[in-house]
Simulated assay, not measured.
Amino acid sequence: MITGLRTRVVRVPLRAPFITAQRRTDAVETLVVELSDEDGVTGWGEAPQVWRVTGDSLAGSRACLEGPLREVLVGAPVDPRETAPRVQRAVVANHAAKMAADIALHDLAARRTGRTLAEHLASLVGATATTGPVRTDVTLSAGEPADLAEAAVARAREGFTTLKVKVGTDAGTDVDRVLAVRAAVGPDVVLRLDANQGWDAREAVRVIGELEDAGAGLELVEQPVARRDLAGLAHVRRHVATPVMADESVFDLDDLVEVIRTGAADCVNVKLAKCGGLTPALEMLEVAGRHGLGRMVGCMMESHLGVGAGAALVAALGLPGAHDLDAGWWARSSPYVGGVVYDGARIALPDEPGLAITGLVAR
């Protein structure tokens, strides 16, 4: 039985500013939650602050966790199949708070059974977790062509073979930015674009078409148009050869169903901070796969804790390819004792039970 819930704010400076078409940030700002049981076992979760995407704040997430989510969690059984639905039903929206509670619940359950988080998640869906590191891309913040090219070369030297280029800040110069990156790293590095809703449908078709004609060799283009513009997203998909990925257009299962129904995307980026944790993410990834969509697990600007949960989800389902889990790499250091470790593009998952986080680093 869950007997306690505790929250703490954690702030970790980034190695450099993270800039997209939607926002700029210089630090990871997140709310860490700990759930404890009658045996003194603790599970960890986090609720990242992402004002411009999910609308979640540290204050709002804390109020949600300390209020209605505490009411449904304390006294509840440590069984995600029984308790996780209570978390999802307890409040409307508050995706980050639900993410924190849900991850902590699964972490606690995994620790109680002596399984890693990946093994625990795999057991829930009748799968066998893969072993070894999970691969991630790395994001190049929006910037001028020369700066992007320099950053791309540096990341490639560090072992990243998949780069995610932030565009959408200026459709008139985005082609130059991407071609500068391609020229700098050569043909063997995989390039993904992420416009973060920065174009309209007409601009997206023009920019992507010019890049295709120039031989930019793009793997995919993520969220080229506004979140609610599924007609525009479908229009882009019909008029370009490059696969189109939905990100902000898909928060939850209902959003995913609409994307599938309208044929608006080739693939989807499922993020725990958008959907509310591991429980809904498992369902969304299963549905997306059943309908033939490409599947990626991504992250917001969260800490090693949220990234560790996302990486465990990838390992649990055996999802191939490079995922979008570089947020912890952007942090100057991990604020936790234990947990995942970055080695260039590889995220090493711990062998210990759950997320294997045992505390916060003293600062």
Results as ranks from 00 to 15, higher is better:
residue 144 E to S: 11
residue 15 R to N: 10
residue 160 F to P: 02
residue 59 A to P: 06
residue 10 V to E: 12
residue 334 S to R: 10
residue 318 G to Y: 02
residue 330 W to K: 02
residue 246 A to E: 03
residue 9 V to N: 04
residue 222 E to W: 03
residue 225 V to D: 07
residue 139 T to W: 06
residue 287 V to A: 06
residue 130 T to K: 14
residue 210 E to D: 13
residue 302 E to N: 11
residue 178 V to T: 13
residue 169 T to S: 14
residue 136 T to F: 11
residue 194 D to I: 04
residue 232 G to K: 03
residue 65 L to W: 07
residue 38 E to F: 12
residue 134 V to M: 14
residue 116 T to K: 13
residue 222 E to Y: 06
residue 128 T to I: 09
residue 352 E to M: 09
residue 235 H to Q: 14
residue 88 Q to H: 15
residue 277 G to T: 00
residue 332 R to F: 06
residue 45 G to N: 07
residue 70 R to Y: 03
residue 51 W to T: 04
residue 95 H to R: 12
residue 285 L to D: 09
residue 37 D to I: 09
residue 336 Y to L: 12
residue 360 L to F: 07
residue 283 E to Q: 12
residue 203 E to I: 01
residue 41 V to Y: 10
residue 52 R to N: 10
residue 34 E to S: 12
residue 83 T to R: 14
residue 138 V to E: 05
residue 265 A to N: 04
residue 97 A to K: 01
residue 33 V to T: 14
residue 8 R to M: 10
residue 221 V to R: 04
residue 185 V to P: 01
residue 188 D to W: 05
residue 58 L to V: 12
residue 243 P to G: 07
residue 302 E to Y: 04
residue 288 A to H: 01
residue 358 T to S: 15
residue 1 M to W: 09
residue 74 V to R: 12
residue 175 V to T: 14
residue 30 T to P: 08
residue 145 P to N: 15
residue 213 D to W: 02
residue 294 G to S: 02
residue 248 E to V: 02
residue 234 A to N: 06
residue 115 R to F: 01
residue 330 W to Y: 13
residue 186 G to N: 07
residue 362 A to S: 14
residue 314 V to D: 10
residue 324 D to K: 13
residue 169 T to G: 13
residue 171 A to I: 05
residue 101 A to G: 11
residue 211 L to D: 00
residue 145 P to T: 11
residue 187 P to H: 05
residue 199 W to C: 07
residue 167 V to N: 13
residue 298 G to P: 10
residue 261 R to M: 11
residue 188 D to S: 10
residue 116 T to C: 09
residue 147 D to E: 15
residue 271 K to C: 11
residue 297 V to D: 06
residue 175 V to Q: 12
residue 55 G to I: 04
residue 132 G to H: 05
